[in-house]
Design a protein around this nucleic acid. Structure first.
Lengths: 335, 335
DNA sequence: GTCAAAAATGGAACCGATCCCACTTTTGGA
DNA sequence: TCCAAAAGTGGGATCGGTTCCATTTTTGAC
């Protein structure tokens, strides 16, 4: 493989000039540029990325930490991030903490990224306590958090107003006439799950229809968690005309289970999801849900991370608003 | 940040000894090891991965090329690969060619990986012609292909017997008594889609029930492609009691559309999918499908790539067999 | 035509590991 | 106790870029 020196020699210039030509920084005369271009072509030269990284102290690697890769939510995120980074010539490396057993284990996954000398790190937070995140953020300036708002990370945390999302859910169901409403939440130790849940309960109460405790099931945002939560809800015998699910995966599981039992959606029970992932138009019936702008949020987080890390000036926003997306799984309450 | 030299000086040994201690290759006396361990601890030393890569000519980076990241199929693959690589201390970088407009564009995505000096490359082939793959494989020895069988890449291509898969599908439907059968395929320029389709048609014919041409719709393996194919099938007025879909996403779309039209699955129409992705238990009704061991195949491909690249000796297989997974979306034909 | 400012240049030093090699020390069998 | 083989060692060369700086060349206003 050819090196800068080979190129420099063939082009009849110094190695510094070649380097300047390639990076586009500094000035190179037209004549030199042409000679260098020809030499590069002729030698089929490609810069060695490791040497470049070592000497420039930039790896052009962005680490992405996710608590799980199950289901479309994280996939939409990953997909958006990969695309945004590729557009800027950066590379993503991934750490999926799904198999982590303990909190230390989860942090070890972060170290797996940090030890790789990532220029910046994106964390899709959920169960990480704010304290831990802040601690890491301190020793790692180019760190940005998706879907988690915290004051310690002003300008570096990107989030959706899940409080509003929870309220939108409540209003939608109440407007449809539902009074006997149940909910299946995600794990309430996760900020995003808790926020929408608390707001949902609060808004239901405000609207005059507080939820009975037996109609509140704490589940988890996974298919398996959804299954057991759905089983728990249906086993409880809690009679209800509508269920608000903390995310779309759980809503999908619920619809499947209701179908199995011959309970019609939305005629007998309305089901409302949260997130608006890619499959929502294709459940049967199509899922009504709270649209969370996951992709926009992910892209913003990515942009700001690139800004912080490389001094880019890409557009971004820190806060996003969910909106109601009505499809066929919710309908008027029929007593 | 501390360097090997700092560690060597503090420990009172040479830099070579420190290097040997860290990499675990070569021999280091117990006494030196202890001193080095203490120095590392004291200085909080972490090896610089770029310097390490440059001098060892190993990036510990594995590139993964996928034609798309939509839907659970690729996600299951990515998830499996990330995990297998992390277990061996390697890192994955991803190139999603979803946004590629032309074939050159798709190859540019491969270059994006190669220019990063990946030690090895995993390609999830589909539309790439065998010729192009082989061409790249030639100049890049540590390249392995998932879900594509080709003689040029003996020992480096991992695949599922989609011929068998297609036949299993045909047999299942015929055994249930279906005679008026339709099929929605993926893009037939993709090997995996074509194989299962051709075998399906062939087996149906062998069993005495060849498909009428108007009951064959060429679609694509995306939600959008599924939607238009489903629309085309239903618009054609082709009367059928069962539909074999080239993958689960399309089957999901079909179930949703049938639900919308009030057509009961499987009572009026049976729907059979392919792949057995993570959501299949949770469609309504739960999707009968051909189980393709995607995760096992991905892991094998990963293992063999690691073997080729780093001389590991991880277990792997090149060929996998699909199996029938009956759930609730297929049932006996009721005339 | 003059001259200061700006542009362009070559090459050495450096980034922080690995790896090789010549050398020293330890080991254990006779 | 001796000695060959094995184990352990230190440090310099090397990987292939970037970056800095002193120096040369070009530019353009007067």
């Amino acid at each position: 493989m050819a090196t800068v020196k080979d190129v420099a020699k063939l082009a009849g210039v110094g190695s510094g000039t070649v380097s300047r030509y390639i990076s586009g920084t500094g000035s190179v005369s037209r004549k030199s540029a042409e000679k260098i271009a020809r030499a590069i072509e002729q030698l089929n030269y490609r810069p060695n990325s490791m040497a470049r990284s070592l000497s420039s102290r930039r790896s052009d690697l962005i680490g992405v930490w996710v608590p799980s890769l199950e289901g479309p939510y994280y996939h939409m995120m990953i997909r958006t991030i990969e695309s945004a980074l590729r557009l800027q010539g950066k590379h993503m490396i991934l750490a999926n903490a799904e198999d982590a057993q303990s909190n230390d284990d989860r942090l070890a996954h972060l170290d797996y990224l940090i030890n790789r000398d990532c220029d910046g790190i994106l964390i899709s937070s959920s169960l990480q306590s704010e304290f831990e995140l802040a601690r890491y953020a301190e020793k790692f300036p180019n760190l940005v958090v998706i879907n988690h708002r915290t004051d310690e990370l002003a300008g570096r945390s990107f989030s959706i107003d899940h409080d509003l999302g929870g309220r939108l859910a409540a209003r939608h169901l109440v407007e449809l006439g539902h009074r006997r409403v149940a909910t299946i939440t995600g794990r309430l130790s996760a900020q995003d799950a808790r926020q929408r849940h608390v707001a949902f309960l609060d808004e239901m109460a405000k609207l005059g229809h507080p939820l009975a405790p037996e109609r509140i099931i704490e589940g988890a945002f996974s298919y398996a968690g959804g299954e057991s939560a759905v089983a728990a809800l249906l086993a409880s015998g809690a009679d209800c005309s509508a269920v608000f699910c903390g995310n779309d995966k759980v809503a999908m599981v619920l619809i499947a289970e209701l179908h199995k039992r011959g309970i019609r959606v939305p005629d007998e029970v309305s089901v409302l999801g949260y997130d608006d992932v890619d499959f929502t138009p294709f459940t049967a019936p199509a899922l009504s849900t709270i649209h969370a702008p996951i992709e926009e949020m992910s892209q913003s987080a990515c942009h700001q991370l690139l800004n912080l890390t490389y001094g880019f000036d890409l557009p971004y926003r820190e806060r996003f608003e969910p909106s109601l997306s009505v499809r066929q799984s919710t309908g008027p309450c029929r007593p």
